[in-house]
Amino acid sequence: MVHPRTLPVPVRSPRQRLANRVNRAFVLHGRIIRRTMTAMAVCAVALGLYQVREPIGMLAATLGEVAQGNFAQAGLAIGEISISGQRLTSEQAIFDALGIAPHTSTLGFDVEEARQRIAELPAVHSVTVRKTYPGDVDVVIIEKIPVARWRVDGVTFLIDGRGEQIGEDRGTYGDLPLVIGDGAADDALVMIRALENVPRLQEGLIALSRIADRRWDMLYDTGLRVQLPEQGVAQALRRLVSYQDEYQLLDRDVSIIDLRIDNIVAIRPNKTEDSDKS
């Protein structure tokens, strides 16, 4: 039998004592220590990423450009672009909206973004953009319908039913009604629809002139001007039809027919040579 007190006591080095304290701390407070170390690691990683954000971004952009070029060189470059359905919109405007560069690949081409840019062009009502591999892009456009020509400041535009400019008239829409003057585009469709109910009044009619953005004058190829009221246009047109049926008023040698006052028709005859001499 050996008494415990007679056993030798080992002498521990400072490193061993430190290791014992660390082990004891982990045994007693291991959970708190692990959480603290995890939080510190996360903060360190975040700080490191923040400091190298610009180099990483430049590297990603460079890799993207390299990949784009490689795709194009591998035979996936966009080659043929087919555009159909447009009359008012130029092919150049559509091509610019597509955003296709010389080395753009089919994989890197964003169909939805291109479609949205084309849809913002003035004359475009709807558009479909489709890419077919390996390198074709098809664009099908449905344009807005012009209802009238609007001449202002010496330029003639085409306008839709909402009065919005959708292009310039280059001589191919001469069959559309012509409206002139400031503000004429906004109310053109209402006046045009009113005239559709009285086709006899459209014979020889060359333009509708907006006066002070309040009312309309009808201009005929004979030089006749018919002044319409601000309110009750439909009734005034019906009266004019009845005067034409009964008196052929539009065929008379007059320069102005004034219908601005209800139930009153004022007429200004053209000047004749006899009246000029007198």
Rank of each mutant, 00 (worst) to 15 (best):
S13C: 00
V66S: 11
D169G: 07
R31W: 10
H29E: 10
A46E: 03
R260S: 10
R215I: 03
I94M: 02
G181E: 03
E203D: 11
L259W: 04
G30L: 06
P55H: 06
Q165Y: 03
S13T: 14
N23V: 09
A236M: 02
R53S: 12
S13K: 07
V22N: 01
V139M: 09
H125V: 02
Y247D: 11
A114W: 04
G75M: 11
V42I: 15
I94N: 02
T36K: 07
I206T: 15
D169T: 05
D245G: 01
P14L: 04
G79C: 02
I264R: 15
R260L: 09
S13H: 04
V2F: 04
Q51E: 12
A25H: 09
R200Y: 00
R5N: 05
L176H: 03
G79H: 13
I118C: 07
T222S: 15
S84Q: 14
T6P: 00
L249H: 02
Y220A: 06
R31I: 11
R225I: 15
I33P: 02
R260V: 07
L63S: 10
G154T: 12
I78H: 02
L249I: 15
D258I: 10
P199D: 04
R239H: 07
I33C: 01
R31V: 13
A41S: 12
A148T: 05
R268V: 15
S13G: 11
N23R: 14
A266K: 11
Q248V: 00
I267V: 15
D169W: 06
R15F: 08
R12G: 00
E113A: 13
A44I: 11
Y220K: 07
Y220M: 08
V22Y: 06
V127C: 05
P199C: 06
L178Y: 04
A207S: 14
V241P: 02
I118T: 08
T36W: 10
D251F: 00
A44M: 12
V241S: 01
M37Y: 05
D175W: 04
L107G: 00
V198D: 00
A46L: 15
I81W: 04
R115I: 08
D169R: 01
A25M: 09
L121D: 05
G204L: 08
L63E: 12
D213T: 03
G174F: 06
T36M: 09
A60D: 07
I159E: 02
R193Q: 13
D169P: 08
E80A: 12
V226D: 04
M40A: 15
R151K: 15
T156W: 08
E65Q: 14
G108C: 02
D221M: 10
R35S: 07
G99K: 08
S13Y: 00
E230W: 01
I166Y: 05
Q244C: 03
R239N: 12
I257H: 06
G69K: 09
R215C: 07
D221K: 11
D175P: 00
E143Q: 11
G64V: 01
L158E: 05
D96M: 10
V2K: 05
A119L: 14
E164R: 14
R117T: 07
Y133L: 15
D138G: 06
K277Q: 14
